[in-house]
Design a protein around this nucleic acid. Structure first.
Length: 671
RNA sequence: GCGCCCGUAGCUCAAUGGAUAGAGCGUUGCCCUCCGAAGGCAAAGGCUACUGGUUCGAGCCCAGUCGGGCGCACCA
């Protein structure tokens, strides 16, 4: 089988730890410590291992041969062996904000999470297609249309003439519509009417709806572009309707008997999907390693755990764990009036993503000056030539949606299982995440009334208790800008703006990623604006300072390239690593060497926060090393030392820049 | 009622079933005639909510209890 390798609690115990004696002890029936003592000497002769100690109750701790280790430096630091391109394709859908109002912090968490996961997948060699789903025919859009048409009495031309932050404008209007509905129950009928018109795709109301949705989508894309978030394809709900995806899915569901027509009971006259053990596992994928994608789908057999053994025959705990059998539950897919539910449409859409529907969209270029990469959109009009094969289907589909949607996601998975089999269902992944709530202090600051009992305040778009994404970015930029101003008053305005933007993005992305997905984030303005400690700016600053060291010695007349060459040619690093100074940098090298593993873990466990912690560790190790005045590059005692130190700094800059890019964190030129 | 998630330092969070439970913030001391102090060093701070169990070993697994949050619609 495979051998489990762990890290030691402290570096002076060793570079790696093997707990295998414990495993063997179970099988042979001898004391772990004895086994370890026998094995250790044998391991010590393996190439690349300098020493093998026995510690604790039976750990074998390995010390790496540091000079041998440096032979591989150039490969792991600069041209990290990116795993070759993989077969098949992965779809990640994120953002998917209702196109009726501005994006808020909850959406920002979604998009940053999704975008970072895409980056990590790509770093692992996956061919990833990023999608943003646009529900342009939902009630939320209808509500805003009611606002424009009835409350404000605006024509399409007048709405077009609305200037400025259109998504903010609709934000207020949307809230207003809700109050307006409340005043008179009859008014709610207008919502249904508008919705119907939008779905019909006819008349001025539909036209207005299309305009509003499109304009707000542009606003969302611009907001996300500020955070280095982009997409390959926008999929519009209206196109799903017009391409009759549902009709096709309905046939498939009936053919496979996945859904049944009810002739009695509560769901009389409806088509329902049976939710029982046969077509879904009950455990939610969020936190259950059991349902993680199999190794061949994700992370090439990286599960170091050699197998599953809950020890056959030995009763676990208070008794054998029986699979939970729930009463069968039925989920209505088609209502008694013949209309399809949202979940039904979602099944159709998911089947398309997996290439199992047998239908495809038409595609057009989505022209947008704020985005760098080519962006496409589904369309029911004329297709543009040159579209990538979006409809080819993916073997793995990650849907980034909040955990509140776990149940509907489970239903979709069940539908997929019934129509396309267990493999397709297994490839349907819900990348769930918890919500973002406001801390009491921040809620008060924003002028909300706060219940003194609770610790936080729920963020709800509908109730308006939120921070808008653009406002948040602006607040971060302003803070960063003033920080720069106090540190460096001479800086030009343009320079400051640029750096402030990068710092704001780094701070926000790091903040949203550092928590595990199933952790509710209590958003506190003070905390999010922090630039010290475990933050994005800490990471950025480490690189900026490292680069400024290189710039400085260059300015002092030293030739950096020549110094690097000298260090390489004379193999100075390996002898240096044995010196006390080298030892103090050893943790930095070890940390950098673990980057590939960190990315693999982040992908396999579907947990990007692994990567922020990893980045922090590297930065911390570098700070710890270079902070020591005795390690100065500029005033190095001799050229050999100087060239080694330059090499260390240079390796760190390259490596950390790479790591930061996987997190979407930009490194400013100066801070 | 059923299901899921959370409970770890004053606060915010980590910890593939492994060693003395770690970080950041905050607090208290130090360190810029030293390549950028958005930094570094150090100290104080813990019955991992509680009770049992499984295991050589439990913050983690199992059963239960108590708190907190969220889902369970012919809404989207």
């Amino acid at each position: 089988g495979e051998i489990l390798v762990q890290t030691t609690p402290k570096l002076d115990l060793g570079d790696m730890a093997l707990p295998l004696a414990f495993e063997l002890a179970k099988k042979i029936g001898r004391k772990p410590r004895e086994i370890a003592q026998e094995l250790a000497p044998k391991l010590a002769v393996v190439e690349g291992i300098a020493r093998a100690d026995v510690a604790g109750g039976g750990f074998i701790n390995l010390f790496l041969d540091r000079s041998a280790f440096t032979k591989h430096l150039s490969t792991f630091v600069t041209t990290r062996p990116a795993p070759g391109p993989r077969d098949g394709r992965v779809i990640v859908e994120h953002t998917s904000i209702n196109p009726n109002k501005a994006a808020h912090i909850g959406h920002v968490r979604n998009s940053i999470l999704g975008d970072t996961f895409v980056r990590l997948l790509r770093a692992r060699g996956y061919n990833v297609l990023t999608q943003n789903y646009i529900d342009d025919t939902g009630v939320q859009v209808a509500d805003v249309i009611v606002g424009f048409e009835t409350i404000e009495n605006k024509s399409l031309a007048e709405v077009r003439a609305v200037e400025g932050h259109f998504d903010y404008y609709c934000w207020d209007l949307y809230a207003q519509v809700f109050e307006w509905y409340g005043e008179d129950k009859e008014r709610k009928a207008l919502q249904a009417k508008a919705l119907h018109a939008i779905e019909k795709h006819e008349g001025p109301t539909a036209e207005l709806g299309e305009y509003v949705a499109a304009r707000i989508v542009r606003a969302h894309i611009a907001t996300m572009a500020r955070l280095n978030i982009g997409y390959d394809l926008l999929v519009r709900e209206s196109d799903i309707l017009r391409q009759h995806f549902w009709a096709k899915a309905f046939d498939l569901l009936k053919e496979t008997k996945a859904i049944e027509f009810q002739t009695e009971g509560k769901a009389n006259g409806c088509w329902v999907l049976r939710m029982d053990r046969g077509n879904t596992d009950r455990s939610d994928s969020e936190s259950s390693p059991q349902t993680a994608p199999p190794a061949d789908l994700l992370g090439e057999g990286a599960s170091t755990k050699d197998a599953t053994d809950p020890k056959p025959g030995s009763p676990r705990g208070g008794g054998a764990v029986a699979p939970r059998i729930q009463d069968d539950e039925n989920k209505i897919i088609v209502r008694s009036n013949g209309t399809v539910t949202y979940t039904g449409k979602d099944i159709a859409y998911q089947l398309w993503k997996l290439g199992k529907l047998g239908l495809d969209f038409r595609y057009r270029r989505h022209e947008d000056s704020t985005v760098a990469r080519p962006l496409w959109s589904s369309t029911s009009g004329d297709a543009d030539p040159g579209a990538p094969p979006f409809g080819a289907g993916a073997s793995l589909v990650f849907n980034v949606i909040d955990v509140g949607q776990s149940y509907p996601q489970r239903v979709v998975k069940a539908g997929v299982a019934a129509v396309a089999g267990p493999e397709a269902a297994e490839g349907t992944r819900h990348l769930g995440y918890e919500k973002v709530v406001l801390s009491k202090a921040t809620a008060k600051e924003l002028g909300y009334e706060v219940d003194e009992d609770g610790g936080s305040v729920k963020v709800s778009g509908r109730r308006g208790l939120v921070v808008k994404a653009d406002d948040l970015i602006e607040a971060l930029k302003a803070k960063a800008s003033s920080e720069i101003a106090t540190r460096d008053p001479e800086r030009s305005q343009a320079d400051r703006e640029k750096a402030a933007h990068d710092i704001a993005v780094g701070a926000l992305r790091y903040f949203m990623l550092r928590f595990s997905r199933n952790r509710i984030i209590t958003f506190d303005m003070e905390e999010a604006l922090a630039f010290t400690g475990e933050t994005g700016p800490y990471i950025q600053n480490s690189v900026v300072r490292a680069r400024s060291i290189l710039a400085k010695i260059s300015a002092e007349g030293h030739d950096v390239a020549a110094l690097l060459k000298r260090a390489h040619d004379q193999g100075l690093l390996s002898t240096w690593l044995a010196t006390p100074e080298g030892s103090s940098a050893w943790s930095l090298f070890l940390a950098m060497a673990r980057t590939e593993e960190a990315i693999e873990t982040a992908v396999r466990t579907e947990e990007p926060s692994v990567m922020t912690r990893h980045a922090f560790q590297i930065a911390q190790a570098f700070h710890g090393y270079y902070q020591n005045p005795a390690h100065t590059v500029l005033r190095a005692e001799n050229e050999d030392l100087r060239s080694v130190r330059v090499l260390v700094v240079d390796l760190f800059v390259k490596h950390m820049t790479d790591v930061a890019s996987h997190l979407g964190i930009p490194i400013p030129d100066r801070m």
